[in-house]
Every structure is written in structure tokens, then in C-alpha cells.
Computed example of a mutant assay.
Amino acid sequence: MAWVGNQTLISHFILLGLFTQSPLHFFLFSIIMVMFLVALSGNGLMILLINVNSRLHNPMYFFLSWLSLMDLMLISTIVPRMATDFLLGHGAISFTGCGLQILFFLTLLGDECFLLAFMAYDRYVAISNPLRYSVVMSRRVCWLMVTVSWLFGLVDGLIQAIFTLHFPYCGSQEVDHFFCEVPAILKLACADTSLYETMIYVCCILMLLLPFSVISASYLQILAAVLHMRSAEGRQKAFATCSSHMAVVSLFYGAAMITYMRPQAYHSSKQDKVVSAFYTMITPMLNPLIYSLRNKEVSEALRKLLRRCYFPLYPIWLP
């Protein structure tokens, strides 16, 4: 503990968590853990399939493998800590631990924002300009896009983690959340945070709306190109290619915008926890399912992998 004037500065936070110790919440906690395991196995399998199958070695699946890695890291940043706190019955977390969680979480969140934008641009080039696709989306360009995604996410995470923990915190140590999310932490600050909250609000709008504008522009161009296609089969294939990405974008950006584009005065703890659970747990679980169930190439790669591993044992079950 430290003293500033007549106020005692706290040395750690206490996360109140998502659930209380009740039979219903034990059941809900079990569902969360199943979702966590599904997300780990689904995203891990996507990364494995894309790396071992040569037919998936193209820009679209290159970006998809990075999206799966980011989802895997995002859910691993939140759920294991939350599960440990729930099982042990307390959620004490140090300033350093809280700062690292903010850094990792916001870095990965920013990464996904920009990666989804680059994935939309990739689909635009593939559909609108297929003859120059391999030139425009070269391996060097793809790696540059991934690097830019990580760089923007890291800068955003560092700025918010450093400035959030720069404020003095005194009085209550209890954070009404299941992880160190910036809006929940700032409620405990013993200083005027209005200017910083405005800065975060503007920063988050830019981090969300800039990639979202690229996504919107890309899909408007894709729609125009598809409508000009004479082949019904070509239109159907183009829509099938883009529908999975559009579903992922809708899930991710919808939840993130509700959390980070609302002014602080409109936040409530219950709503924030539900929305945060959606894009930190549910979305990472759904993403690989959306891409695998709606993608014939991924399904075929999975069948080939199963055939290679289990064909000697189960020759009748596999095509």
C-alpha cells in the first residue's frame, strides 16, 4: 500500500468474475469451459490443416491461419485466468498482471480488426481482378499486411495499458468484470479520467471504423463485380466465398462496437460482461466452425487428414 494525501493507493485489483458460486453458475461455467475447449481444438485444427495441405497455401488461407492463431491467443488470455479465479473463489490480480492482460487483449483485438480488413481486401482482389491476383496479393504483400496488423494492435495495446495504470487507484479494489477491461478499471481511478476516456473513445472509433470502412468498401466493390457476372454459377461461388468472412465480421465488429463505441455514461457492468464474453469466448469458438462448415476446401482437407491418420483402422467410414 502507498499513501497520497489522505488516500491509500491499492496495490492490486480483485476481479469479481462472470459468475457467482451457485448451481446455475457452475453449469454456465461448465458451458464456458466446453466452449474454450472447442475454440482451442477448432482453431488449432484450422492452423494444422492450412499448414499441412498444399491446396490451402494461398493468401486467403494464409490470413485465415493468422485469424485462428489470434483467436486461440485471445481466448487463452481471458478464460484460463477467469476459470482459475472461479475455482479458487477469489480474483486478486496485481497491477503488473492487469497491465499485461490489457496489453495482450487489446493487441489481439486490434490485430483482428485490421486482419479482417485485409481479408476483405483479399476477397475484393480475387473476385474483381482475378488475373492480377497472384501479383497484387504476393507472399511479400501478405506478410506485410499481417505485420501491419500486429504493429497497429501492439501500439494500441501499449498506449492503453500504460496510460490506464498511470492513474492512481484508491478505495475499492473490486473490478466488476471477469478480466481487466479498461472501462471497468477506470471506474476505480482516484483522478479525473474524462480526458483520457475521450481519447480512448476516439482511438477505439478509429481502430474500429478505419478497418470497417475498408471492409465496407471492399464488399461494395465485390457486390458490384458479382452483379455484373453473367454466370449464375460464378455469382454463387463468389457469394459462397465471401459469406463466411461476412459472418465473422458481423459477429466480431458488432460486439466490439457495442463495447468500445458507446460513451462511458451508457455502460453498465452486466451488459459489458455479456458483450465481452461474446467476442472473447463465443466468437473465437464460432470462427473456425463458420469457415470449416461453409468451406468445401477446408472440409476436403479435413477428410484427407482423417483418411491419412485413420484409414487403416476405419476404411469403411471414410470416403
Rank of each mutant, 00 (worst) to 15 (best):
Q7H: 13
H12L: 05
L18Y: 08
F19E: 06
T20S: 13
T20E: 13
Q21R: 11
H25D: 15
F26G: 09
F26E: 11
F27L: 15
M33Y: 10
V34T: 11
F36M: 06
G42A: 03
G42N: 03
I47K: 10
L48W: 12
N53Q: 11
L56I: 05
H57V: 01
N58A: 02
P59V: 02
Y61F: 12
D71S: 13
D71M: 12
T77C: 13
V79H: 01
V79S: 04
R81W: 10
M82A: 15
H90N: 14
H90D: 12
S94T: 15
L103R: 08
F105P: 00
T107V: 04
F118P: 00
F118A: 03
D122A: 10
A126G: 00
A126E: 09
N129H: 10
Y133K: 15
S134I: 07
M137S: 07
M137R: 13
R139P: 05
R139D: 14
V141W: 09
W143S: 07
L144Q: 11
S149H: 02
L151Y: 08
G153Q: 05
L158S: 10
A161L: 01
T164N: 04
L165I: 08
L165V: 04
H166V: 02
Y169G: 05
V175H: 01
F179L: 03
V182H: 01
L186D: 08
K187C: 05
A191N: 06
D192H: 03
D192T: 05
L195A: 14
M199S: 13
I200M: 11
I205Y: 14
I205G: 11
S216E: 05
S218D: 03
S218K: 06
Y219W: 03
A225C: 05
A232E: 12
A232R: 12
Q236E: 09
M246A: 14
V249L: 01
L251K: 03
G254F: 11
A255E: 06
I258L: 13
Q264M: 12
A265P: 02
A265D: 09
K270Y: 14
Q271D: 10
Q271C: 10
V274T: 07
V275G: 04
T283P: 00
P284W: 00
M285P: 04
L289N: 05
S292Y: 05
L293Q: 04
K296T: 10
E297D: 15
E300G: 03
P315W: 01
W317H: 11
